[in-house]
């Protein structure tokens, strides 16, 4: 194999990575110095430039995992299984970031780190717990195919239940505190909106960059197992030849 095989980077990822770095720099400049402070929330509003893109990407990652899960169950495609796993791992990071920025933002805005009335944050918390369960199941190990099937079912369960969780939390907390969807309510200043869009684009690029790397690691692991299997097969067959050459049959 070429040197590529032991390195998960490539021209594309280096380009993507550079774009993410530049993007983050732009986001910092725009977020801290470009966008104006909010009338009510003052500087705290700047947290949404990280919070909203993270939340956005959490659900994008979940959707990717669900798609990968369906494709594994349907076509038994290892490629999609690795995609599902990679996406869940990155998704859990975005999810954690969403929860962290959400509660840090909540402190100055609502005077509490955690408010049970915030539908989307509570939904995301439950999703976080399910994703952690998904990764725990993955790491519990076992037969490669069995692990993939089990994880795929859990991935689908998580995705299918998000709307129900969201609805249940919404009814429960009908006094919802959460900002109306920041993108759609049209109250944002132009520059704030622009910064938010930049944030989402940068995070999406980061997601793609991390996916490529994580996927390649997963794929290399899979190939390594294929090599291991060849060795194991050769060893196993050697048992047989050792046995029969010792006998009268040759």
């Amino acid at each position: 194999m070429s040197a590529d095989a032991v390195n998960t980077g490539s021209r594309t990822t280096r380009l993507l990575g550079s774009a993410v770095l530049v993007g983050v720099l732009a986001l910092i400049l725009l977020g801290f110095f470009g966008a104006p402070e909010d009338d009510e929330q003052a500087d705290a509003v700047r947290m949404i430039f990280v919070h909203v893109p993270s939340a956005f990407l959490t659900y994008a990652a979940l959707a990717t995992t669900a798609l990968g899960s369906v494709m594994w169950l349907w076509k038994r495609s290892r490629w999609w299984d690795v995609v599902a796993h990679s996406s869940a791992e990155i998704g859990v990071i975005f999810c954690g970031l969403t929860l962290f920025t959400g509660s840090v933002w909540g402190r100055p805005t609502w005077n509490t780190y955690w408010d049970w009335g915030d539908v989307r944050l509570v939904t995301t918390l439950i999703l976080f717990l399910m994703l952690v369960g998904y990764l725990a199941l993955r790491s519990a190990g076992g037969d490669e195919n069995a692990v993939a099937t089990r994880a795929a079912v859990v991935g689908l369960l998580a995705a299918a239940n998000v709307p129900i969780i969201n609805r249940s939390v919404e009814w429960w907390a009908n006094r919802t505190l959460h900002q109306k969807s920041s993108l759609t309510d049209g109250n944002l200043e132009d520059l704030t909106l622009f910064t938010l869009v930049v944030g989402i684009v940068v995070w999406a690029l980061f997601f793609v960059w991390a996916m490529i790397h994580r996927f390649r690691i997963g794929w290399l692991e899979h190939q390594l197992q294929a090599v291991d299997l060849e060795t194991a097969l050769a060893q196993r067959r050697a048992e047989a030849t050792a046995e029969s050459t010792g006998e009268a049959n040759q």
Binding site: I126, M130, G133, L137, A140, G142, I164, V169
Partner: peptide, 27 residues
């Protein structure tokens, strides 16, 4: 059935089942 073949099934089951049942608990 999902955890039946998992070695640490006694611990894996609750961490998968309980968050999933959160809406049931609420409702």
């Amino acid at each position: 059935a999902l955890v039946a073949g998992v070695r640490a099934r006694e611990t894996v089951l609750p961490i998968l089942l309980l968050p999933l049942l959160a809406p049931v608990l609420i409702a």
